[in-house]
Design a protein around this nucleic acid. Structure first.
Length: 110
DNA sequence: GCGGTGACGGTCG
DNA sequence: CCGACCGCCACCG
């Protein structure tokens, strides 16, 4: 087989594939995505992969949040957009602006 | 090639 | 529950 290039064409594609599986109205954490993509401990790269996306992407990037159930983006710009998108899907935030993961976190079966 | 940086997370106090 | 610390690794100057 052809030589594997370890840049975006492999790891990133796997990450994106996982993100695409997140159902509407649910969220997943960066670390969770990393593990499901076969890159445990690389939550940071998941964030980097998403950062490289254009705003007009088809991926449901808004469903990816940090381990606290919060949004890691600037609350006055992209972060606000993300929150609005999620609320539009029916995801509710608590008083402190965090999502109760016990209720909304995506739990894949396999 | 080196060092700083960051859409993060687990651990510890 | 919260903040401080450290490990992680691709990107960038």
């Amino acid at each position: 087989m052809k030589r594997q290039r370890r840049d975006e064409s492999t790891s990133y594609q796997k990450i994106f594939a996982v993100v695409k599986r997140i159902p509407r109205g649910r969220v997943a954490t960066y670390g969770q995505i990393a593990s499901l993509a076969g890159l445990p401990g690389n939550a940071r790269r998941v964030g980097y992969a998403l950062f490289s996306l254009s705003s007009a992407t088809a991926l449901p990037w808004q469903r990816v949040v940090n381990a606290k159930g919060g949004i890691s983006l600037d609350p006055t710009s992209s972060g606000l957009t993300q929150r609005l998108l999620l609320e539009k899907e029916g995801v509710l935030f608590d008083m402190r602006g965090r999502i109760p993961l016990t209720r909304y976190q995506w739990r894949p079966r396999n």
